[in-house]
Nucleic acid binder design. Structure first.
Length: 492
RNA sequence: CGGGGUGUAGCGUAGCCCGGUAUCGCGCUUGGUUUGGGACCAAGAGGUCGUAGGUUCGAAUCCUGCCACCCCGACCA
């Protein structure tokens, strides 16, 4: 195993794959397309879960859990949704194995144990959940119903990549039911903003809030909202989606309520989700050729302290100084690791914690003890400075905030520099080849044109930004009139 | 699912064309010296060469099937 990572500039996807493995985030498993999320990677995911879950609770949602399996008859009830996912469903057909008479010691599927009705392994849970909601909702008093679940889902993908696209992935899916169209739309938008806030404030990843075109819409939704982030190779990554389901699922599963006026109507639905794909976004948005760069708010270890010592005596002296610092930092809610192991050299530890994206590293040795100082290195800029021990706690806690805002700002600048307004087809294709990134351009609003552009350039419409300004323009391909710019990009 | 490629120790590899059971580096173990940017020396452990069959006195090497993974296309959060 070579010491350094592949360079981003030479092979971006190889850099990503290697980084995920070398930083101990995840690895491939014995199951095709499914990953093992390793402890370090999982603790980042747990931090994401915690922050998101708090935000969901804050906005009135509660958690519940629905089954992994969906009977085929339920799954197919909402036709568009079923059709959209049909090609990537895992299906359970049998419930028993038996000894194989031809191959001693081997098992085979027992043909006697065929299920009467096949079970679909959920690719998403609308079907099972709405079939349950039917029993839970009778009156306007039962609404709104605001539920979230943390779960795994399975989508049988042809080509998979750690975190970005795996056959099984972890996510949360919110499923809500409302009395009015307006309220459901408001919920859809609210949750989109929750996602955007999470991405920007916790992940330090700036996102564009927008709506999907008909082509890219969730199967079974009336409208799909999304947040789109730019990765360091200029490609777009859809980081979260929020769907306004209209009355589609209510009608498919016959979920009606009686209003105050004693009238029957179908309820209005939403669903929204983010997945372990966020891990991919986090990695690709900030990290460099030395390894991960984690935002302090999601870093499992925010500060690592590396003592530089010869022999136990020196270590003891250093520990006398370090342990009170550790205690004070912990009191401030900062997660600290004092790595006093003598199994690795300091240089090894430096490289290792850089690879793992620990935001701040403190180094302290005999020289520092004599001077009453500590060396502070920040991961995002690689800057090293020496501070007095007395001011270290204050310095570290300010620095964590600095790093959080700095990497956000850096990602925002990067997106700004790689977003182009384009008005001609020539420019459009030229930029896609030379300067991959986001392109804000006019589009005539038809699926045919979008499809054609995709064919010609591989770029798709990532979203119609919510904050798009009304502006007269001509479609980049057809020259037909358009009222606002949409975001084109190649995407993950 | 189409086109191309690769499977040799935990990881990365040499050997394959031209058959004689395996090379090197990292990692691992033990001992010693080290420790301000991935330490050094010495001694060790570890391999059904992806898998099943075939050719042969003999197969990592040649032939056939299968499996897995990677890259490029079609599909997708």
């Amino acid at each position: 195993m070579s010491k350094s990572l592949p360079k981003r500039s030479e092979n971006y996807s190889e850099w990503y794959n290697e980084l995920v493995k070398r930083a101990d985030l995840a690895e491939n498993s014995a199951v095709r397309g499914c990953m093992v999320i390793k402890p370090y990677g999982y603790s980042i995911w747990e931090k994401m879960q915690r922050a998101l879950d708090d935000m969901f609770k804050e906005t009135g949602h509660t958690n519940a859990y629905f089954p992994l399996f969906v009977p085929k008859s339920l799954f197919e009830a909402e036709e568009k949704n079923a059709e959209g996912f049909a090609k990537e469903c895992a299906v359970v057909t049998h419930y028993r194995l038996k000894n194989n008479p031809d191959k001693p010691g081997k098992l085979m599927v027992d043909p006697e144990a065929k299920l009467e009705e096949e079970l679909i392994v959920r690719p998403t849970s609308e079907a099972i959940i709405w079939s349950t909601y039917k029993n839970w909702i009778q009156s306007y008093r039962d609404l709104p119903l605001l539920i979230n679940q943390w779960a795994n889902v399975v989508r049988w993908e042809m080509r998979t990549r750690l975190f970005l696209r795996t056959a099984e992935f972890l996510w949360q899916e919110g499923h809500t039911a409302h009395a009015t169209r307006e309220e459901a739309i408001a919920e859809t938008e609210q949750m989109l903003h929750v996602y955007a806030t999470f991405a920007e404030e916790f992940m330090a990843v700036p996102v564009i809030r927008g709506k999907k075109t008909a082509n890219e819409r969730f199967a079974g939704a009336e409208d799909t909202y999304c947040i789109e982030a730019m990765m360091q190779d200029g490609k777009a990554l859809q980081a979260g989606t929020s769907h306004f389901l209209g009355q589609n699922f209510a009608k498919a599963f016959d979920v009606k309520f009686v209003s105050k006026e004693n009238k029957q109507d179908y309820v209005w639905g939403t669903s929204w989700g983010v997945s372990t794909r966020l891990m991919g976004a986090l990695i690709m948005a900030h990290s460099d050729d030395e390894g991960l760069i984690l935002p302090p708010k999601l870093a499992p270890i925010q500060v690592v302290i590396v003592p530089i010592f010869k022999g136990e005596e020196q270590l003891n002296l250093i520990s006398e100084t370090v342990l009170p610092i550790v205690a004070e930092l912990k009191k401030k809610g900062i997660s600290v690791k004092f790595d006093h192991s003598d199994k690795q050299s300091p240089g090894f530890k430096f490289a290792e914690y850089e690879l793992k994206g620990v935001p701040i590293r403190l180094a302290i040795g005999a020289r520092d003890l004599a001077n009453g100082t500590v060396e502070v290195a920040r991961r995002d800029t690689k800057e090293k400075k020496t501070y007095a021990i007395s001011e270290i706690v204050e310095t570290v806690s300010n620095l964590l905030e600095d790093i959080q805002t700095n990497i956000y700002q850096r990602a925002l600048n990067f997106r700004f520099e790689n977003t182009h307004q384009v008005d001609t087809w020539d420019e459009f294709t030229k930029i896609l080849e030379e300067n991959p990134g986001f392109i804000a351009a006019h589009w005539d609003g038809t699926p045919e044109t979008e499809e054609k552009i995709k064919e010609l350039t591989k770029a798709t419409i990532r979203c119609i930004p919510l904050e798009a300004v009304e502006e007269e323009g001509k479609c980049i391909l057809t020259g037909n009139p358009s009222s606002k710019r949409v975001i084109f990009a190649k995407s993950y």
